[in-house]
């Protein structure tokens, strides 16, 4: 199981980084989304991978580590905010320069 999780994280990050290196804004946004999946999963599984043990007090089987989950939960929401910010930035760039190339605004004053 560890192998599956680790390879999934690797795959998501590789895809994310590749898209992050593209020249247009839209793939960059997608790449960032994939990369944040990878990072969120990574942080999440740092608490160990356990099946059927949610971090609710009172469960008979014991519980998994709740702390990484709390960290990741806010990361997901913040990730949404930054994605939205990036998308709107891309729109604005396109509006100002007529292009969606990542360096389109580079020479603007």
């Amino acid at each position: 199981m560890e192998l599956l999780v680790a390879s999934a994280i690797g795959l998501l990050s590789a895809a994310g980084v590749y898209l992050l290196l593209r020249a247009r804004t839209f793939p960059v946004v997608l790449g960032l989304a994939l990369l944040s999946y990878a990072v969120n999963l990574f942080v999440f599984v740092s608490g160990g991978i356990r099946v059927g043990r949610p971090p609710i007090v009172g469960a008979a089987a014991g519980m998994t580590d709740p702390l990484p989950q709390a960290l990741v939960l806010t990361a997901i929401v913040i990730g949404f905010a930054t994605t939205a910010f990036l998308v709107v930035l891309a729109l604005r760039l396109r509006r100002e320069t007529g292009s969606d190339h990542v360096d389109a605004g580079g020479d603007a004053p």
């Binding site: 560890e2 999780v5 980084v17 590749y18 990574f42 599984v45 991978i49 580590d65 709740p66």
Partner: peptide, 29 residues
């Protein structure tokens, strides 16, 4: 570059998952 990062992330995750270790959140739980 992407494959390099992917392999590194997968390796780090693998290493982390197979080492175990004490949780720091026992008190919070």
């Amino acid at each position: 570059i992407a494959v390099g990062v992917g392999v590194a992330m997968a390796g780090a995750a693998w290493w982390m998952l197979t080492r175990g270790g004490a949780s720091i959140s026992a008190e919070q739980a």
